[in-house]
């Protein structure tokens, strides 16, 4: 049972300040249906704030308009995966995965959860508490929990940034596999991650950030790490980002 996701989302704001900090100017980008949109930028540029606004986690922000092409509200159609896995330490892996159902006082789909946990290689850990798991395993549980929410739009805030390089690449493959047909907004500071997973990549740099035409990498996700084209683009993105941040420091 797939969620109905026949819609794109356009996100617009003339200017967005958070507190005294002027973050974005002429913010305007689209999450196309079934595509992965990446926001790539250095830490502190306001990516997380933007994602949290889209996820309806920042109260009293009126000037950012997220409009769905089917004219229904976006609220309630997103699921959220943060940098921190946010597993509840008192719940087993299986109960963590079914947390959303419990919070809504609904019966969770256990067999689907078990199935997904098996797909990410955690079938022998379903009764374990999170603190027994490694960082990569915990993030896989968080990914399964996100998928179990069965929402058309998935918002991910640097979900793999705390993992080691090898685990990160594996997690990107798993995520691309399991969330391949969803509309995804992925925030990252890792050009490689954006190039592997993004259908369109917006570079966020400077203050305030100005949105320019996104980069559209070739091929299908997850793109191979050995792809020479990808490596070349990664180098050029790194150069662009580091130039921008040098200007920022000056």
């Amino acid at each position: 049972m797939k969620p109905d996701q026949n819609f794109s989302i356009s996100i617009k704001a003339d200017r967005l300040a958070f507190g005294a900090v002027f973050l974005f100017e002429h913010l305007d980008f689209t999450l196309k249906k079934n595509e992965w949109t990446c926001l790539l930028g250095p830490s502190g540029v306001g990516k997380t704030t933007l994602l949290r606004i889209v996820a309806d986690l920042v109260p009293n922000i009126k000037n950012v308009i997220a409009k769905c092409s089917d004219n229904k509200p976006l609220n309630g159609r997103t699921s959220y995966m943060a940098q921190d896995d946010l597993l509840l330490p008192w719940l087993s892996v299986l109960d963590n995965v079914l947390l959303g159902y419990k919070l809504r006082s609904k019966q969770g789909d256990r067999s689907k959860a078990l199935n997904l946990l098996q797909m990410v290689g955690l079938s022998s850990n379903i009764d374990d508490l999170p603190d027994k798991l490694s960082g990569g395993m915990r993030q896989r549980v968080a990914l399964v929990r996100t998928i179990m929410e069965n929402r058309p739009v998935v918002l991910m805030d640097e979900p793999f940034s705390s993992l080691d390089a090898i685990t990160r690449v594996r997690m990107q493959d798993i995520a691309a596999d399991l969330l391949g047909d969803r509309t995804v907004l992925l925030i990252t500071h890792d050009p490689m991650e954006a190039l592997r997973l993004g259908d369109r990549i917006h570079i966020l740099s400077g203050r305030p950030v100005k949105f320019i035409t996104p980069i559209i990498p070739e091929g299908t996700r997850p793109r191979s790490i050995t792809d020479t084209q990808l490596l070349k683009e990664q180098a050029s993105l790194l150069t662009r980002l580091s130039n921008a941040s040098t200007l920022d420091l000056g």
Partner: peptide, 29 residues
């Protein structure tokens, strides 16, 4: 309570009372 947990509960559509019962109280134990 870890603000991340509360964010998560919010995006999962949890009511105030179920967030209290399933997240805030156990986290405060």
């Amino acid at each position: 309570t870890n603000l991340g947990y509360l964010d998560l509960a919010h995006t999962m559509g949890a009511s105030k009372s179920s967030t209290l019962a399933h997240i805030r109280v156990p986290a405060a134990l």
